[in-house]
Amino acid sequence: MAQFTEERLAKVKEIIARYPDGKQKSALLPVLHLAQEQFGWLSSETMDYVAGLLQIEPIEVYEVATFYSMYNLKPVGKYMFEVCQTGPCMVRGSEDIIEYIKQKLGIKVGETTADGLFTLKTVECLGACGYAPMMQLGKHYREHLTKEKVDAIIEECRRNAAANN
């Protein structure tokens, strides 16, 4: 079974040590983030593994992981387009952008392309209404989206993916 790398395991221990004895459960959120960083998504095996590390019941991990939309409970693509669909972005045409991405990649919201590169997800306000319509890609915001910009972003991702292989 997949396990944390040495480096991440040290980090997990450091996080757990922040909390009093018997309260290891408090470390659950950051440890799940670490797990998602390493494994890409949270499978039930991964969640059971985390439960073991924190000495809690698996059901307690599932309860938390299913609550938050930013934990991926299914495999996701290498690049995740999180397109904002809240009011201001919608007024500025986010619906068209979402539709365009769907067509361009041949997937629906929540799906991943067959090559495992892209996942499309819609999200609520990311606090960048001044730059609407926008989406989050990894750790960066992509703003003032147009169809052309979307094309460029997809191209960029494909190039990066090819270069890294």
């Binding site: 019941e57 698996p58 059901i59 307690e60 599932y62 309860e63 299913t66 609550f67 938050y68 939309s69």
Partner: peptide
Amino acid sequence: GDDLNVFAAHNHVYFGRE
């Protein structure tokens, strides 16, 4: 009991076992 719990959020909340 500890084997019944609530999962997920919003309008897809689920009450059940793991």
